[in-house]
């Protein structure tokens, strides 16, 4: 059981605790190997947008390694805690580890302190983790998350995007990340209104990923054949709810028939 002297206590930080006991997987010196020679899987398009009661977040399911599709059912949108979720684009390995560490840190903090971090505190925490990945990012393993959640103190949905150096930017209406973000972002930009209902926000997010998949080879579209649909969550005061695949299947069928009739 880990014990520390009062002056040397890692407090409520889980990454710091791992460092103290020597369990950190150090990015270390990677020699001259560029990440693109390793053929690592990459995760792609994720979006988040606000609606009247909170935020909707969605991400496609495809991971690519070069020209190959390496995973068809990857989950890039992950629940961080009761009232927030994180979505990732970039090198899948470090990104998944970052998300896992982020989830653990939020829970660890909550248990040690007896109180959850504020939403802003969570966004800052993620920023520190992205910055910590900078040496790996410089070798090509860039991880760029987006973070969204419901702020229980301010009683509204909030969202943030990040850059590879840990820069943290709070956005007003929507954020996008990954290779298809240009197309997805444009769809949301055109369709966005201040008072979107939950239903309309889900439709808009679904449509944005459809268009991203249509124009970006690294973004996967809805796969009715295998029953694989984007991961989509809605977060409001009551917490996070994942939108069921059946529901998304209906919505994507509607989009498909609309596109057919054009």
């Amino acid at each position: 059981m880990p014990s520390f002297t009062p002056g040397d206590d890692p407090g409520s930080s889980f990454p710091e605790l791992l460092r103290r006991i020597g369990l950190t997987a150090d990015a270390g010196a990677g020699g001259d190997t560029a990440a693109d020679q390793l053929h690592l899987p990459h995760a792609t398009t994720c979006v988040a947008l606000k609606y009247v009661d909170g935020v909707v977040m969605a991400g496609d399911r495809r991971a690519t390694a070069g020209n190959l599709i390496s995973h068809r059912a990857m989950e890039k949108v992950v629940q961080a805690d009761r009232h927030s979720a994180v979505a990732i684009a970039g090198a899948a390995g470090p990104a998944m580890e970052m998300v896992r560490m982020f989830q653990l840190q939020l829970e660890h903090y909550e248990k040690v302190e007896g109180k959850a971090l504020s939403l802003e505190g969570k966004a800052n925490q993620l920023s520190t983790m992205v910055r910590g990945n900078l040496p790996a990012a410089l070798r090509g393993m860039v991880v760029v998350p987006i973070f969204a959640g419901y702020d229980v103190r301010r009683e509204c949905g909030r969202l943030w995007d990040y850059d590879a150096t840990g820069g943290r930017y709070e956005e007003r209406d929507y954020v996008t990340t990954g290779s298809g973000s240009l197309h997805a972002g444009t769809v949301i930009k055109v369709g966005f209104e201040d008072d979107l209902t939950r239903d309309a926000a889900i439709n808009l997010a679904a449509r944005s990923l459809w268009e991203a998949a249509d124009a970006d080879s690294a973004t996967g579209g809805p796969d009715a054949l295998r029953g694989i649909y984007p991961v989509m969550v809605a977060i409001d005061a009551d917490g996070l709810e994942r939108i069921a695949d059946d529901d998304l299947a209906v919505r994507y069928e509607a989009i498909a028939s609309e596109v057919r009739d054009r």
Binding site: M1, P2, S3, F14, L17, L18, I21, L23, R100, L104, E107, H108, K111, V112
Partner: peptide, 13 residues
């Protein structure tokens, strides 16, 4: 706190 730490470390590891 020691218990939370031990449990979280084990769960992570």
């Amino acid at each position: 706190v020691a218990g939370v730490r031990a449990a979280d470390i084990k769960g992570y590891q």
